[in-house]
Simulated scan of single mutants.
Amino acid sequence: MTSLGGATMGTSWSARIVAPVSGLPEGIAEGIEAVLARIVAQMSQWEPDSDLSRFNRAAPGAWRSLPPEFNMVLAAALVVAERSGGAFDPAMGALAELWGFGASGRAGEVPDAGEMAEALRLGGRACVEFDPLLLRACRYGRAALDFSGIAKGYAVDTVAAYLRGLGLSDWLVEIGGELRGNGIKPDGQPWWVDFEAVPGSPLPPIRVALHGLAIATSGDYRRNFEVAGRRYAHTLDPRTGMPLDNGVASTTVLHGECMLADAWATALTVLGPEAGLALAEREGLAMHMVIREKAGMREILSSGLAAMLE
């Protein structure tokens, strides 16, 4: 088995690949790096010349052509946004910038209430017009795309597709904690992985086999800042403009596509325990949620996940 890895998207990537009898194709690591570089060039808000950054700088009302992959990710993000009632929104980049969780990276200050109200009123998915058939979109007001809740998952799927295209069937791909597995290891075992644990959680670990499955986790412990004794998590509620304060420490979703596992994990986290579980049941999602309470931490499992663990 060959292990490869590197840096991408402000984090790391890794791939564990079982070589066929004929051996691995030459240049496979470089091929993966090229796949990831292409996605960054399209979808990174931290790269000023990316397609996403250029879209966000475009004059309001001006249509811009989109690369096919960008187009597909935006389409998927808008579907999750619609089905979650706006708990997920790929066009809240202006709001993320205000809170310091965007490309400027100036987290540490609570933004002015008037600025937040303006970003909410003049931003969000309602201020993006999208024509998926013609691969184009335009923005209005202060709408700015932010794919941080879906791009890593898409990158995992794209690397997986690259490996399949090389005729490889047994591998585990990971980017920043999002994973997708296929086939089996050399010992005949599937790719067993543990759910990402909340730091300090006493809850027992959950282990699953990623056989044709992907897993993504949204956690409030990854990025945050504190002001006057109050902690502000990096996940924002697109409906209120505020960082989450609903007790959700983490949400993990298992799905056939890592892109959708990524987006749904964010949406369910925003919705919180009751509404999040209700949506997971309605969408048939395999979800695990950890809630912080005064008495400690408790976990919620959707029926889809509970059935998988039986």
Score class of each variant (00 low, 15 high):
residue 78 L to V: 11
residue 303 S to V: 15
residue 37 A to H: 13
residue 90 P to M: 08
residue 149 G to W: 04
residue 35 V to E: 10
residue 302 S to K: 06
residue 43 M to Y: 00
residue 255 H to M: 09
residue 209 A to T: 02
residue 240 T to P: 04
residue 216 A to P: 00
residue 97 E to K: 06
residue 127 C to W: 13
residue 156 V to R: 02
residue 152 K to Q: 06
residue 9 M to S: 13
residue 191 W to Q: 05
residue 245 D to I: 06
residue 135 L to W: 08
residue 83 R to G: 03
residue 262 D to H: 06
residue 290 V to P: 00
residue 265 A to I: 03
residue 97 E to M: 12
residue 231 R to C: 15
residue 7 A to T: 12
residue 169 S to Y: 15
residue 301 L to N: 00
residue 173 V to I: 14
residue 181 G to I: 13
residue 279 L to M: 13
residue 177 G to L: 13
residue 58 A to F: 11
residue 42 Q to C: 15
residue 247 G to K: 02
residue 271 L to W: 07
residue 97 E to P: 03
residue 81 A to L: 01
residue 205 P to L: 07
residue 53 S to H: 02
residue 8 T to A: 15
residue 195 F to L: 10
residue 216 A to F: 01
residue 88 F to E: 04
residue 170 D to L: 14
residue 162 Y to V: 07
residue 167 G to V: 06
residue 95 L to K: 00
residue 76 A to H: 11
residue 277 L to G: 05
residue 120 L to S: 00
residue 17 I to Q: 12
residue 265 A to L: 04
residue 47 E to C: 14
residue 76 A to E: 15
residue 152 K to Y: 09
residue 62 A to Q: 12
residue 307 A to T: 07
residue 301 L to H: 07
residue 131 D to V: 00
residue 32 I to Y: 01
residue 126 A to W: 01
residue 232 Y to G: 01
residue 296 G to C: 08
residue 136 R to H: 01
residue 25 P to K: 02
residue 85 G to P: 00
residue 144 A to P: 04
residue 70 F to Q: 00
residue 132 P to S: 04
residue 238 P to F: 11
residue 31 G to T: 00
residue 213 L to P: 01
residue 51 D to V: 12
residue 66 L to G: 02
residue 102 G to M: 10
residue 244 L to D: 07
residue 59 A to H: 10
residue 59 A to I: 11
residue 231 R to I: 15
residue 163 L to P: 04
residue 38 R to M: 11
residue 187 D to Q: 14
residue 6 G to W: 06
residue 99 W to Q: 06
residue 260 L to V: 08
residue 173 V to G: 05
residue 42 Q to W: 12
